[in-house]
């Protein structure tokens, strides 16, 4: 029974991760943070792969290669984490820049008014 539940949850998580990757790709059309956002899209795509590898472990599909499959899953997990770090770090930098531009533009516009008075 637990095996069936595990397999079902595994399949649901693969579908959910795939939907997330598609949504992340769709968001790419609406933002201009292309490179860092591609890292996030790739990370979500790798999550699908990682879940598939995890499912093969759950289903004991490659029993004799369990160590190798486990290693692959861990490597994928590290890659996913690194891609997320790169993506979100770069996006944080962008959002900080927008904050600086907003603050600085407001200051300059106010200063412009003052010099005219």
């Amino acid at each position: 029974m637990i095996d069936i539940i595990n397999s079902t949850l595994g399949i649901i998580s693969i579908v959910a991760a795939a939907i997330t990757a598609v949504l992340a790709y769709d968001i790419h059309k609406h933002n201009r943070l292309s490179k860092p956002w591609f890292a996030v899209i790739l990370a979500f795509a790798l999550m699908v792969a990682r879940r598939i590898v995890g499912l093969t472990l759950d289903l004991d599909l490659y029993e004799n290669m369990a160590d190798m499959v486990n290693l692959t899953e861990n490597l994928l997990m590290v890659a996913i984490s690194l891609l997320f770090i790169w993506g979100f770090w770069a996006m944080r930098k962008n959002f900080r820049r927008f904050d600086v531009v907003e603050k600085h533009s407001t200051e300059k516009a106010t200063e412009f008014n003052r010099t005219k008075k």
Partner: peptide, 16 residues
């Protein structure tokens, strides 16, 4: 473009 949009928005709102 995002920064250009922000700068125009701030300038139009704050310049009297």
């Amino acid at each position: 473009l995002t920064s250009i949009g922000i700068a125009i928005d701030r300038a139009t709102k704050h310049i009297e």
